[in-house]
Amino acid sequence: MDRRGGVAYYNPTAGGGSMLIDAGDGYAEPMNVIISGLSSSDVLTLHGAINFARAIGFSEECFGIQLGGYMSADLGDGNGWVNQTIELRQDYGNTGGGTCLESLIGGNHFRIFVQKGTAAESGALFLAVSQEEPISEHHDIMPDGYDIGRNQLVSAAVGETWFHRVKYNTTAQNITGLLAAGADGINHGIAQDGIVTLLTVTIASG
């Protein structure tokens, strides 16, 4: 089975980066899920990541319109601060238009950042996941929304899932020490528990 990287991930802080993305106005949001560089290589491409996201209940923005602001991250890979690759939203079981519903009533969403610079080329996908309020509340993160969003995504991913004739087997491992727990500098002043979940996603044969 082809694997893109030789390691699961590199700690961004070791290369001068951060596990916090720039949310603007001096605030940050945590990258609280990592899709391992030891996952099947097809999962670590943009097309493959979107297909896996659909298998676990997420799709692209409503009508392809970027509703949230772009945010950037420095993954310590030598590329400096780079904008998110894509933002995906909970689709409520409808990959065609379900994210329009999420935009109205709120739900889970995440931004993907790829660790691919020559200084730390793991190929891992770093995800900033959070549960957000409905549009009437300006899509603010709900209380405890970083931990809730991570936990819901992980629960949907672990085990066997499939989409568009591709079957995935996913395992999870919780990691401490990458993120500092608490609300210091975190957007909306919402504390998070400091746990990062590492997902290893393997495309099943047959």
Rank of each mutant, 00 (worst) to 15 (best):
V82D: 01
L88E: 00
I65F: 10
Q115V: 09
L153G: 05
G117P: 00
Q84K: 12
G107F: 00
L88P: 05
A53R: 02
Y92T: 02
H138A: 12
V158N: 08
A49S: 15
G97M: 11
I105K: 14
T118D: 15
D74H: 09
I86Y: 14
F126L: 15
A119I: 10
A73W: 07
E121K: 09
C100R: 04
E132H: 03
S103G: 14
G80V: 01
A49C: 14
N94D: 15
V82C: 06
N94Q: 11
C62W: 00
G80T: 05
L104E: 14
F126C: 15
E132C: 00
E133D: 12
F58G: 01
N108M: 12
T118Y: 13
I135Y: 08
V82Q: 11
A120H: 12
P143M: 07
N94P: 07
D74M: 06
H138N: 13
D91H: 12
G57K: 07
R54P: 04
I65T: 09
E121Q: 07
E121I: 07
L88G: 01
L67S: 08
G96K: 05
S136V: 09
A49H: 13
C100K: 02
L104W: 08
T95G: 02
G98T: 04
L127Q: 03
I112A: 14
G76A: 04
L101G: 01
S59A: 14
A120D: 11
M142E: 12
M71G: 07
D74N: 15
G68I: 06
F63R: 06
P134N: 02
F63C: 01
M142T: 09
N83T: 12
A120L: 10
S72C: 06
G68M: 11
A128S: 15
Q84W: 07
G69I: 13
L153H: 08
I135Q: 11
A128H: 01
F63E: 06
I141A: 14
A157D: 02
R150P: 10
R54I: 10
Q131C: 05
L101Y: 04
E121T: 09
G106R: 00
G93C: 11
G78T: 08
G93N: 09
P134D: 06
R54L: 12
